[in-house]
Design a protein around this nucleic acid. Structure first.
Lengths: 245, 245
DNA sequence: GCTTGATCCTGACGTAGCGGCAGGTCATAG
DNA sequence: CTATGACCTGCCGCTACGTCAGGATCAAGC
């Protein structure tokens, strides 16, 4: 038994497991109950090993070995499904790799490592991922990549000044249909168009995100939370007023 | 609570689980025992979500959240380890994808689909993978790819005629130091050199494989098993004799 | 105040593929 | 006859929850 285990690279415990499932059972037993594997059993065991390396589950393997010989189409279908699954897995793993690489780079780029800020970034990203689909996130990332780091940083800076102006106007009580505010809204939507958040679906997602989490988001901004919140509401109202006209 | 669950995309059951592990526990409870999550708890929950998406385990996340804030180096190390693990996973998945693709192609290429032969191929491959390391297999696959399909098929054909000649000589009792047999051995080692199996480690691996499984291998060949076995032993003896001289 | 439907609670079992251990039996060499 | 492997049959453990079961609580309408 240990002999078979060594020859096949399967542990004795796994052999017991396969026996229990009826996947590979010894053809006979000695009087004392010890398992005796026949040559056919050994072949079957090798097949199990081969199919396991394809990532199939033990029940799937059982089906292939017991009925697969008669049904090539089913076998092909199973392999196809497995292949699709592996490709999905590869895609996910690649995305994760990119994500991790970026995070490590960000961590290294910080002059004074602030793990807390890192965690806050993660927090925000995980919120953001709840509201934008994989597709949308892919497109947005592509867009940013196409623009390049400089352009994205510039857009970010523009967004900052824009927010600050909005805060001032909101505090001053400038009416939302004032030309200056109209101009602000124009620059705001322009930034959205640049970054690719101007689609109907992206707007809807961002709207839901804001509706559900306006306080949390505002609290994480480099401005006083209530100022930021009020400014964004002000801009949205102004955009709404602009549309209504 | 269901509210929190909906807002964060975490199930109620997961919240219970996190509470049980002490990963995210509600700051307080109502008199009746219902969980009340504070704003700090919610932030912590978002961080857990973010770290989970990096593929970290719950115990790892607990460490990061409880002590990671004070130790940026440990955090970096953890992310590095995770990144390495993901890369290994990507490599494995890619190899599996190639393997599956080849198998599906092979299945499709058969004029008469013979699932049984397919399983036998798998069997053989799983045996072969036990004796050649990942490194060796990669190098051999690279070598075959560099040679191209035609050259590999030609080598295979040459190997077939070589085996048949060896069978004839062995049956005829030609001595192993006969010039004709010397020539056979020369062509044999030449094929090995072509396919990249001429390294010391590859020879050793192949030797162990043959020693452990000569009967099984022989039985799978398109010649009578005992003829094939005898022919290979004959060639090995001839090679040994040639070396001794 | 009472009912009702939604929400919440605490256990407890199930998952995939074995790993590992405990306590006992069998086989073989000395 | 015994010492030492190799083998046997249970049974618990692992991840990160899903999925009941059975009961308590809550908010709202009557």
């Amino acid at each position: 038994m240990g002999e078979l285990a060594r020859a096949t690279g399967v542990t004795v415990r796994a052999l017991h497991h396969y026996d229990q499932l009826g996947l590979v059972s010894p053809g006979e037993r000695t009087a004392s109950g010890h398992r005796r594997y026949t040559a056919a059993d050994v072949r079957r065991l090798y097949r199990v090993r081969g199919l396991r390396q394809l990532g199939l589950s033990l029940p799937e393997i059982a089906v292939v070995l017991d009925h697969g010989g008669a049904d090539p189409a089913a076998l092909r279908q199973l392999l196809d499904a497995q292949l699709r699954q592996v490709r999905v897995q590869i895609e996910r793993a690649n995305r994760l790799e990119i994500h991790l690489t970026e995070l490590v780079a960000q961590l290294d780029a910080e002059d004074v490592p602030r793990p807390d800020q890192f965690l806050t970034t993660l927090e925000t990203m995980s919120m953001y991922e709840r509201y934008f689909s994989q597709d949308q996130r892919d497109r947005l990332a592509e867009r940013r990549a196409a623009l390049g780091t400089e352009a994205v940083d510039a857009a970010r800076a523009e967004m900052s000044t824009l927010i600050e102006e909005a805060i001032r106007h909101q505090r001053a009580g400038t009416p939302v249909d004032d030309p200056a505010v109209r101009d602000l809204v124009g620059r705001w939507t322009g930034l959205g168009a640049l970054l690719g958040t101007d689609g109907a679906r992206e707007q809807a997602s961002a709207g839901r995100l804001w509706d559900d989490h306006r306080e949390e988001i505002s609290r994480r901004m480099p401005w006083p939370a209530e100022d930021f919140l009020a400014a964004v509401e002000y801009l949205r109202a102004a955009r709404g007023a602009g549309r209504a006209v």
